[in-house]
Amino acid sequence: MAETLTEDIKFIVFQLKEKEYAIPVNKVNSIEKIEHITRVPGLTPYVKGVINLRGVVTPIIDLRLRFGLDEIKYTESTRVIIISFDDMEVGLIVDAANDVIDVNMNSIEPQPEVVGVEEAEYISGVAKIDKRLLILLDLEKILNRDEIRSDSKIEG
Protein backbone atom coordinates (compact mmCIF):
# COMPACT_ATOMS: atom_id res chain seq x y z
CA MET A 1 0.00 0.00 0.00
CA ALA A 2 0.91 3.63 -0.26
CA GLU A 3 1.71 4.55 3.34
CA THR A 4 5.20 5.72 2.48
CA LEU A 5 3.92 8.72 0.54
CA THR A 6 3.73 12.02 2.34
CA GLU A 7 0.99 13.62 0.30
CA ASP A 8 -2.77 13.65 0.62
CA ILE A 9 -4.70 10.63 -0.53
CA LYS A 10 -8.43 10.54 -1.08
CA PHE A 11 -10.35 7.96 0.88
CA ILE A 12 -13.94 6.79 0.60
CA VAL A 13 -15.49 6.81 4.06
CA PHE A 14 -18.24 4.42 5.05
CA GLN A 15 -20.11 3.45 8.20
CA LEU A 16 -20.37 0.11 9.83
CA LYS A 17 -22.06 -0.11 13.20
CA GLU A 18 -21.40 3.53 14.12
CA LYS A 19 -17.73 3.34 13.27
CA GLU A 20 -16.13 4.99 10.28
CA TYR A 21 -13.91 3.05 7.91
CA ALA A 22 -11.94 4.17 4.88
CA ILE A 23 -10.72 2.67 1.61
CA PRO A 24 -8.37 4.52 -0.79
CA VAL A 25 -10.44 5.96 -3.61
CA ASN A 26 -8.25 4.46 -6.31
CA LYS A 27 -9.29 0.97 -5.20
CA VAL A 28 -12.97 1.82 -5.48
CA ASN A 29 -14.72 1.37 -8.82
CA SER A 30 -18.17 2.54 -7.86
CA ILE A 31 -20.73 2.71 -5.09
CA GLU A 32 -24.04 1.02 -5.77
CA LYS A 33 -27.38 0.70 -4.10
CA ILE A 34 -28.17 -2.79 -2.98
CA GLU A 35 -30.08 -4.92 -5.47
CA HIS A 36 -31.06 -8.50 -5.80
CA ILE A 37 -28.30 -10.82 -4.65
CA THR A 38 -28.13 -14.35 -5.98
CA ARG A 39 -26.97 -16.71 -3.30
CA VAL A 40 -24.08 -18.99 -4.21
CA PRO A 41 -24.26 -22.30 -2.34
CA GLY A 42 -21.39 -23.82 -0.42
CA LEU A 43 -19.68 -20.61 0.61
CA THR A 44 -18.88 -19.08 3.94
CA PRO A 45 -21.80 -16.93 5.25
CA TYR A 46 -20.10 -13.58 4.78
CA VAL A 47 -20.04 -14.09 1.00
CA LYS A 48 -23.64 -13.20 0.33
CA GLY A 49 -23.60 -14.23 -3.30
CA VAL A 50 -23.30 -12.47 -6.63
CA ILE A 51 -24.99 -9.50 -8.26
CA ASN A 52 -25.34 -8.34 -11.81
CA LEU A 53 -23.19 -5.24 -12.01
CA ARG A 54 -23.90 -3.89 -15.47
CA GLY A 55 -23.45 -7.24 -17.09
CA VAL A 56 -20.56 -8.41 -14.93
CA VAL A 57 -21.27 -11.06 -12.33
CA THR A 58 -19.74 -9.63 -9.13
CA PRO A 59 -19.36 -11.41 -5.79
CA ILE A 60 -20.62 -9.59 -2.69
CA ILE A 61 -19.18 -9.69 0.82
CA ASP A 62 -21.17 -8.54 3.83
CA LEU A 63 -18.54 -6.60 5.82
CA ARG A 64 -20.54 -6.83 9.03
CA LEU A 65 -20.38 -10.61 8.88
CA ARG A 66 -16.79 -10.51 7.72
CA PHE A 67 -15.88 -8.59 10.89
CA GLY A 68 -17.97 -10.82 13.07
CA LEU A 69 -20.56 -8.13 13.78
CA ASP A 70 -24.26 -8.90 13.90
CA GLU A 71 -26.17 -8.85 10.64
CA ILE A 72 -28.83 -6.17 10.16
CA LYS A 73 -31.60 -5.69 7.64
CA TYR A 74 -30.58 -3.70 4.59
CA THR A 75 -32.02 -0.18 4.59
CA GLU A 76 -32.31 2.70 2.18
CA SER A 77 -28.83 3.83 3.11
CA THR A 78 -27.17 0.42 2.66
CA ARG A 79 -24.54 0.59 -0.05
CA VAL A 80 -22.35 -1.80 -2.00
CA ILE A 81 -18.83 -0.50 -2.52
CA ILE A 82 -17.33 -2.14 -5.58
CA ILE A 83 -13.58 -2.46 -5.14
CA SER A 84 -11.02 -3.93 -7.47
CA PHE A 85 -7.94 -5.42 -5.97
CA ASP A 86 -5.41 -7.85 -7.33
CA ASP A 87 -7.46 -8.67 -10.43
CA MET A 88 -10.55 -9.32 -8.35
CA GLU A 89 -13.73 -7.31 -8.40
CA VAL A 90 -15.76 -7.59 -5.26
CA GLY A 91 -18.61 -5.66 -3.68
CA LEU A 92 -18.62 -4.83 0.05
CA ILE A 93 -21.93 -4.31 1.78
CA VAL A 94 -21.75 -1.42 4.26
CA ASP A 95 -24.33 0.46 6.34
CA ALA A 96 -23.79 3.74 4.51
CA ALA A 97 -21.19 5.45 2.37
CA ASN A 98 -21.39 9.17 1.89
CA ASP A 99 -18.05 10.88 2.23
CA VAL A 100 -14.77 11.37 0.46
CA ILE A 101 -11.95 12.69 2.62
CA ASP A 102 -8.37 13.81 2.00
CA VAL A 103 -6.03 12.09 4.39
CA ASN A 104 -2.45 13.19 4.81
CA MET A 105 -0.28 10.13 4.92
CA ASN A 106 1.55 11.55 7.94
CA SER A 107 -1.61 11.47 9.99
CA ILE A 108 -1.93 7.73 9.59
CA GLU A 109 -0.83 5.73 12.58
CA PRO A 110 -0.38 2.03 12.86
CA GLN A 111 -3.32 0.28 14.39
CA PRO A 112 -3.40 0.53 18.19
CA GLU A 113 -2.92 -2.70 20.07
CA VAL A 114 -6.45 -3.53 21.00
CA VAL A 115 -7.33 -6.88 22.31
CA GLY A 116 -9.78 -9.35 21.02
CA VAL A 117 -11.67 -7.48 18.32
CA GLU A 118 -12.05 -9.68 15.28
CA GLU A 119 -11.93 -6.80 12.86
CA ALA A 120 -8.49 -5.83 14.17
CA GLU A 121 -6.77 -8.22 11.82
CA TYR A 122 -8.24 -6.49 8.77
CA ILE A 123 -7.01 -3.04 9.77
CA SER A 124 -3.93 -1.50 8.23
CA GLY A 125 -3.94 1.68 10.32
CA VAL A 126 -5.99 4.53 11.74
CA ALA A 127 -6.19 8.16 10.75
CA LYS A 128 -7.34 11.01 12.94
CA ILE A 129 -8.95 13.86 11.04
CA ASP A 130 -10.30 16.62 13.29
CA LYS A 131 -12.38 14.71 15.73
CA ARG A 132 -13.10 11.75 13.49
CA LEU A 133 -11.29 8.49 13.77
CA LEU A 134 -11.04 6.63 10.45
CA ILE A 135 -10.16 2.96 10.38
CA LEU A 136 -8.18 2.10 7.26
CA LEU A 137 -8.87 -1.36 5.88
CA ASP A 138 -6.37 -3.90 4.64
CA LEU A 139 -8.10 -5.10 1.49
CA GLU A 140 -5.68 -7.91 0.93
CA LYS A 141 -6.67 -9.54 4.19
CA ILE A 142 -10.36 -8.92 3.66
CA LEU A 143 -10.22 -10.59 0.28
CA ASN A 144 -8.09 -13.47 1.47
CA ARG A 145 -9.45 -16.35 -0.52
CA ASP A 146 -8.04 -19.21 1.49
CA GLU A 147 -10.70 -18.51 4.02
CA ILE A 148 -13.63 -18.95 1.69
CA ARG A 149 -12.40 -22.37 0.75
CA SER A 150 -11.47 -23.65 4.16
CA ASP A 151 -14.66 -22.27 5.64
CA SER A 152 -16.71 -23.90 2.97
CA LYS A 153 -15.01 -27.20 3.63
CA ILE A 154 -15.91 -27.06 7.26
CA GLU A 155 -19.46 -26.22 6.36
CA GLY A 156 -20.19 -28.73 3.70
Binding site: T38, P41, G42, V47, G49, V50, I51, N52, T58
Partner: peptide
Protein backbone atom coordinates in the same frame (compact mmCIF):
# COMPACT_ATOMS: atom_id res chain seq x y z
CA UNK B 1 -17.67 -16.59 -14.84
CA UNK B 2 -18.18 -15.85 -11.18
CA UNK B 3 -15.10 -13.67 -11.20
CA UNK B 4 -11.62 -14.22 -9.83
CA UNK B 5 -12.69 -14.00 -6.22
CA UNK B 6 -14.99 -16.99 -6.37
CA UNK B 7 -13.14 -19.87 -7.95
CA UNK B 8 -13.89 -23.55 -7.52
CA UNK B 9 -17.42 -23.28 -6.20
CA UNK B 10 -18.72 -26.80 -5.81
CA UNK B 11 -21.08 -27.94 -8.59
CA UNK B 12 -21.39 -24.45 -10.08
CA UNK B 13 -19.64 -23.89 -13.39
CA UNK B 14 -20.59 -20.27 -13.89
CA UNK B 15 -23.44 -17.82 -13.97
CA UNK B 16 -25.67 -16.05 -16.40
CA UNK B 17 -27.84 -12.96 -16.35
CA UNK B 18 -31.52 -13.47 -16.94
CA UNK B 19 -33.97 -11.15 -18.67
CA UNK B 20 -35.01 -9.56 -15.38
CA UNK B 21 -31.39 -8.61 -14.62
CA UNK B 22 -30.93 -11.26 -11.95
CA UNK B 23 -28.05 -13.67 -11.86
Amino acid sequence: SLGNYLTNVFAISGATILGDGQV
